[in-house]
Design a protein around this nucleic acid. Structure first.
Lengths: 203, 203
DNA sequence: GGGTGCATGTAATGGGTTACATGATTCT
DNA sequence: AGAATCATGTAACCCATTACATGCACCC
């Protein structure tokens, strides 16, 4: 018999992310989307196609409450907030240590099989990856600055900064690896060209 | 109108991984599972529940060929190999640069909301993560050594080593981040304890 | 006889992405 | 009038995990 990681909602999915977001402040589904993108968008995304059905289920389970809000000059909206039960659920969820899953990595998969295609193909993948990581690094520095400026009083800001710091460590390492790998790919290519040049001379 | 990343199979999924594996050597579905675990298991996993149905589809699409193998002293098995069409497909797939997706990261999600639970909860998550990364680091060093020993002649080995090197860069950075983060979590906790101690003294 | 490893599959379930559909308001 | 933004939702489709089911061979 095996222990299961998730069964009746112990796993981490859209619902947990939404409960987490609502633990920061009550808001509408529309706002959740934007808040998620701004705050945890570097490691977690949600689409409307997931958010609205999830909010429906969470409401049925009495983990969140919906309040219709009518405002002049704006469309109506439904503002959701955590119930006491919802707050408990967030705490319970946080008490379960995060699983150490192995996420699928398309870049590495393609690179692993890189020998079966022109080197330029691998090069492009790695190059675009490095560019992305450099941009991310810049972004992380800005985000950290902003958090320290705007939320220096909030005790939760320290946790937010830890996740930003993860990004910094990650992206820095990835840029280093990427540059090194690009050099190695170039070496492979120039060796291949030498080889074909020698072949031509012989012909 | 938006460009779609994947439509009729341009995406990267079980099928592509299997085609890639078969580009290295023909083998049975059972062997694919084991091979995947040994070779790309650090960034890509497949289960039998995916492998067998995928092989069926790939056979129908004439991308792979099945040959029944009967051997005395062993159960029968189906050995799959790439067709010419399958080899083309692998090359086409490799020519499309890897997408820069944002994988969901449960550890960071929980850490982000860490302020809503005891610090010990965050601590456990990070601690287990660091341990995992340290083990991975050891494994990577062994794998690299083994590849250099057993496949020094194979030109594809260079690509394999690049993926191992990714792991090394990644895990090293993650161990650094994890240790730093554990220290910060400890600081938060001791500050909280001081606070409650002062409170007690006042009572 | 029972455990382990080899070997192949199916079914149930859950969950995520995308496209589609609708409609108000505000700005140009 | 038309585009952009706010706002909520549904439906189709794809993909993955897990559990279940089966059976042979080999060794103790």
């Amino acid at each position: 018999m095996k222990e299961k990681t998730g069964k009746h909602g112990t796993g981490t999915t859209t619902s947990e992310a939404l409960l987490g977001i609502l633990s920061i402040a009550p808001m509408s589904g529309y706002d959740m989307r934007a808040t998620i993108e701004r705050s945890i968008g570097n490691f977690w995304n949600e689409s409307f196609g997931q958010i609205y059905p999830a909010l429906k289920r969470l409401t049925e389970e009495k983990l969140v409450e919906k309040k219709a809000e009518r405002r002049k000059g704006h469309p109506d909206r439904n503002v959701y907030s955590l119930t006491a039960k919802g707050e408990d659920r967030v705490r319970e969820w946080l008490e379960v240590p995060a699983a150490n899953e192995v996420p699928r990595n398309e870049l590495l998969l393609k690179l692993f099989f890189g020998g079966h295609a022109p080197v330029s193909a691998s090069r492009e993948s790695v190059e675009s990856f490095v560019t992305r990581q450099q941009q991310a690094l810049k972004r992380y520095r800005e985000i950290a600055k902003q958090i320290r400026k705007e939320h220096s009083d909030d005790p939760r800001a320290e946790f937010w900064l830890m996740t930003v710091d993860y990004g910094r460590h990650y992206s820095e390492a990835m840029v280093k690896w990427g540059r090194k790998t690009l050099k190695e790919l170039d070496a492979i290519e120039s060796r291949a060209q030498e080889k074909s040049a020698r072949k031509k001379r012989r012909e």
